[in-house]
Every structure is written in C-alpha cells, then in structure tokens.
Amino acid sequence: MSDLISRGFRGKRRPAEPGRVPPGQYETRDFPVLSAGPTPRVSLADWDFRLTGNLDRERRWTWEEFRALPREKITRDIHCVTKWSKLDTEWEGVSVETLLEGVQTSAEYVLAFCDGGYTTNLPLADLADGKAWVVDTYEAEPLPPEHGGPARLLVPHLYFWKSAKWVRGLRLVDEDEPGFWEALGYHHYGDPWREQRYWND
C-alpha cells in the first residue's frame, strides 16, 4: 500500500465481484492481444504436440490424435500481467493431466515450447490436478491464430503469459530455467494474487 495519495484521483471503480480481480488488475470485456512477434503459421497437417525431456519415453500426438483425446469444457477468469483481467472465459481442450497419464518422470519443472520460439517455465505440479489445459476452442469457436490457435496452454491461476500461445509441447526438466519473458525480468512463477509481475516481486 502506498503512502502517496494522487491528488484528486477517484478512479472509476468498475464494479467487480469481490475476490475475482487480483490486486493491480482491472476487469475488461475485450480480449486484448499481446505477443512479441508475428503470429506464426502452422498447418494442422504439420502440427503435433510433444512431451520431451526427462521422461520414460517421448509422447507425440498429431492434430487428429490430439482432437480424439478426452476433452473438457473450462470456464475460468484470466489475468494478464499488463493489468487486465477477463472473467468467465470459456475454453475447450485437453487437460494436461490427461496428456501426462502414464508418464514416469522425476522432473519437477516444465518448459513449454511454441511455434515462433516462445517458451515459458512452470513447476510441473502447477500443470497437474486439473489446473492446466491445452485448449483449441474459445467461446465454442476454433481458437483464432492471434489468440494462440490452433492450440495454446491455459494455466488460469498464473499470469496469462504462462498460458503460452501456439504451444507445441512440454519439455520436462529437473531444474527451473527461465522462459522468454522470465529471462527478460518477469517473475519465474507469476501468481496474480501475490502480484508476482517482475523478478523481484
């Protein structure tokens, strides 16, 4: 909390349900687009999703195989580090838990990798127990490319840069290593409720 009052500032105080918008965030009904480079292009014929790194054997799904996996409908609030939060977003996809079924690993961390070269790091535990998905559908429509289509990671309990767009796989690793934004000064974990925006937060 600051001891500096901004003279005459009242703010708009958009009504949000208590407890749904984390500190420093405001609610938006838009769906802003943020990415560091051009939207990558990939044909579904070439698309696959892979589990690599420290595990008993690599796993790979083609688009058809991925689409045939058990699917879930997900409704969650999302929080972007650039300050907007969007409530009750509706997605469809495959739980990461489903993808990890039968995988034997001693890895504790994951580096998600994507078309376009983007990466982000997460503790493996944050992807288990139905807390994360690979989604290909937004509001009942195929996920638009600018929002990460054909498929993106959805990890709604962390800041949205962890929900990597254009995701192509997860590398299971023993040591936490910074991903793209994490190496550029953003927080390694990114809990919006603890306002973990930047590395020293």
Partner: peptide, 27 residues
C-alpha cells in the same frame, strides 16, 4: 497483426519482426 503478417509475407525473417500492441482494452 496486419503489418506483422504482411512483413512475413514479404519475406522478412519473423525473428527480426518485433511487435507490441497498444491502446485501449475497452470495458
């Protein structure tokens, strides 16, 4: 979105096209 995608179409290396989105987020 339009400009970055056109640059890639025109043969620019995507790794040399950096983007930042701006402006109102509505609501």
């Amino acid at each position: 979105e339009t400009a970055a995608s056109a640059l890639v179409d025109l043969g620019h290396d995507p790794a040399r096209v950096k983007t930042e989105r701006f402006g109102p987020t509505g609501a």
